[in-house]
Design a protein around this nucleic acid. Structure first.
Lengths: 209, 209
DNA sequence: GTTTTTGCACTGACCAGTCAGTTCAAATTC
DNA sequence: GAATTTGAACTGACTGGTCAGTGCAAAAAC
């Protein structure tokens, strides 16, 4: 899944160790927060010696920063893929947004810990990885903004909508609904959650029908 | 302002110190997270000696927990107030939801640090204040759920909506849009943001008109 | 034979929580 | 109304523990 191409095509063994460290770090940091999670814990959960962590990453912060980049890269790719697939199949922009909602849900379903940790850090200030976070956030939100803008250009959406704000709101809708789903009603199906959000997106809750 | 009544009518000085500590703690923890914030920092920012923190609160965690309860209490009261005011004035349930969106925005506008800190902690597990957080979350979401349920009962909303999920999604919409507003476009007006969210709530973005 | 991992002892900074002592405003005494 | 007492509120130096990061020799993997 990650061995062949990737960024630097390093040796496979190294990549596998890094992956194990990502996985260990993501759950621990999601549960406890960055500062409350120790490097010893991460190493132990990954089944690796502490020295190995420092052989593979310059510091705890760097490990975390690369983890963030890695994770949001996956999400962005998935959103873009959903949008493009819909376009290729001749769907409307609402279809594209709907497909992106589903892609978001699938992502959160698969990586709940990452999502949680991301949300916890996103609006913080004064942290070393702030700029990383901003860049990476913009990449993801931009995909939604593009769909909205194209919808406005094509006459499908009202010209009066506020693109950045509406994009934020849509992202928030999916994010919070999905995190609540995973935290408080994990037994429900993804389709169920998707249906509820679809209805909200299409304004089938109130007002018109 | 706080001398006479309050909860326990304790001495004024004590209450004032606690308030200063809340204010210092909320911004520091919002910026850095709970574990990365030291008690020395909180004391210094509050202009108080470290010992005073421990004279007023049993521990750092307890200070934080009481801070959470305090803050969400304010929010819940504000939401409930908005809902009741709309009802008294004979508004529809959409009006009530709209008023609650505005109340939420006003709250976040006033206490952005608290909101940020709340979001960062809400979906964590394994923390001592988890139960506090759950209780307090349910109080706030319940107000929205009630409005939705009443809307369904009164025929204003579709019977098919999923009340808890839709409530989560609405809360998320406001939360994320408002945090993005405060973080990335703080110069915009509250009315502006409110208008964009109103439009989304009423389905005036896509589909019907 | 080079790269990667291990295991573990060590350091220095940092930090939550403690406690003996100080402050001061109100209550009490004369 | 001045002198004295009281005690809640506050102070800040100190302690015991924790943790990020280092150093390195030997083993394992490739």
């Amino acid at each position: 899944m990650e061995s062949s191409s990737a960024t630097s095509g390093g040796s496979t063994r190294r990549e596998a160790t890094r992956q194990k460290l990502y996985e260990a770090a993501v759950t621990l940091i999601a549960e406890q927060g960055f500062s409350a999670t120790t490097v010893d814990e991460i190493a132990e959960r990954a089944g690796v010696a502490k020295g190995t962590v420092y052989y593979n990453f310059a510091s705890k912060s760097v490990l975390f920063e690369e983890l963030l980049r890695h994770g949001v890269g996956l999400l962005t790719a998935s959103l873009r893929d959903a949008a493009e697939r819909t376009a290729r199949e001749g769907g409307t922009k609402v279809d594209a947004l709907d497909a992106m909602i589903r892609a978001g849900l699938v992502f959160i379903d698969r990586y709940p810990a990452f999502t949680q940790l991301y949300v916890a850090e996103l609006w913080r200030t004064n942290r070393t990885w702030q700029s990383t976070l901003m860049v990476v956030r913009q990449q993801a939100v931009a995909v939604v903004e593009d769909a909205l803008r194209e919808g406005v250009a094509g006459g499908e959406f009202s010209e009066e909508i506020d693109v950045p704000l509406t994009a934020s709101a849509l992202v928030g809708m999916v994010l919070v609904a999905a995190l609540d789903w995973k935290s408080f009603q994990p037994e429900r199906s993804l389709d169920d959650v998707h249906a509820a959000l679809s209805r909200l997106l299409q304004g089938r809750v109130s007002g018109c029908r």
